[in-house]
């Protein structure tokens, strides 16, 4: 068979061990598929979305209820975004639990962590673009949180929002952040991340001298597996989009009414729960940033995994990293459940 463009995006053949589901969980590839889908559905939404405080919520209603397949497109965009966060988190856990972040891959680990942060910011800005009664309090608390940062808080707030009362003014900036200023960095970091996977010798496996399984699979087989993953994820997204529509609320009139949504979007429920404990700067800024810093430092200051352990599930030599990441995950999940 003459290889197509899509085949040429892959190496001619790769070690079979690097492409096993039980090794990769297919998480990175699924994230790429979701990002492509988010790009396509996002462009389609832009044909109808009006980034203006008076009209934004109405244009979302038009898209959802009047445009043929508009609601479906919006639901696909919504569910792809939620799934992307989950798949990215699974990808991160896989990389830690298989000790895949060791040098020379530790720089790529940082690129991946950066992509994860950008994905969270894109999810939040996208959620705000609904500009209906469901978004005012999460937007107010989220942007007031920025103001609590000493010295640069006020500047960062103006950078994010453009000043004034966020519920009146943030739309223009959040639109630009969402459509371009966060998306473009995702494209750049994403391409760099994928390039570094190949440059660093593919998906992490033990070094060749320690590795007995020398079988390789051709790229035909790799493309076939990717197509299968896309098919399964695509079916799941279609089912979710048909049966569970994306949230929508009545348009915001001046200030939200008393029954407006006061709960954070699900991926920030854990932060909202911590904010109930006290000082917003400590619980809303320092602790989340501290967790992020700890994750970033794992390949640099934690005990290094042995070469023979790279690419094996739950090896002994990076136990500490596994335990730390598990504790963080359980902490976040429990806080989310308490606040549900």
């Amino acid at each position: 068979m003459r290889p197509s463009f899509f085949h040429h995006l892959h190496p001619p053949a790769i070690p079979a061990a690097q492409a096993r589901w039980r090794h990769t969980l297919g998480a990175g590839g699924t994230a790429v598929f979701l990002m492509l889908l988010l790009g396509v559905t996002g462009i389609l939404e832009m044909f109808y979305y009006v980034p203006n405080p008076e009209e934004a919520a109405l244009s979302v209603q038009t898209l959802t209820y009047h445009v043929p397949f508009g609601g479906f497109i919006r639901n696909l965009h919504y569910w792809s975004a939620q799934l992307l966060l989950i798949v990215s988190a699974v990808h991160l856990l896989r990389v830690i639990f298989t000790a895949a972040y060791k040098y020379p891959r530790r720089f790529n680990y940082l690129l991946g962590l950066g992509l994860f942060v950008l994905a969270v910011m894109l999810d939040f800005t996208g959620y705000i673009l609904r500009w209906d009664q469901g978004i005012c309090w999460p937007l107010t608390t989220g942007t007031n949180l920025i103001k609590t940062i000493p010295l640069i808080g006020g500047f960062l707030f103006r950078l994010a929002v453009g000043g004034g009362d966020a519920c009146q003014t943030a739309l223009t900036r959040f639109y630009t952040w969402h459509i371009f200023a966060l998306t473009l960095p995702v494209v750049v970091l994403g391409v760099w991340h994928a390039f570094r996977v190949r440059r660093d010798g593919g998906i992490a496996t033990p070094p060749a001298r320690l590795f007995l399984d020398r079988t390789r699979i051709p790229r035909d087989e790799l493309v076939r597996r990717e197509a299968a993953a896309m098919f399964i994820v695509g079916i799941l997204l279609i089912l979710l989009s048909v049966f569970f529509p994306a949230p929508i609320a009545p348009a915001m009139i001046d200030k939200p009414s008393l029954n407006a949504e006061t709960r954070a979007p699900w991926f920030f429920l854990w932060v909202q729960q911590m904010l109930k404990w006290g000082d917003p700067f400590i619980f809303g800024v320092l602790i989340p940033l501290g967790i992020l810093t700890l994750l970033a430092l794992i390949p640099y200051i934690f005990p290094q995994p042995a070469d023979s352990d790279i690419g094996r599930w739950f090896p002994k030599s990076n136990r500490l990293a596994q335990v730390v990441v598990t504790v963080i995950a359980i902490f976040v999940i429990i806080l989310t459940l308490i606040n549900t």
Partner: peptide, 20 residues
């Protein structure tokens, strides 16, 4: 005064719906 939501009136005074 915590993070800027509007507090709601109740029997004893006021309660903030965002962080309690």
């Amino acid at each position: 005064t915590h993070l800027g939501c509007t507090v709601e009136q109740n029997a004893d005074g006021f309660i903030c719906p965002c962080h309690g």
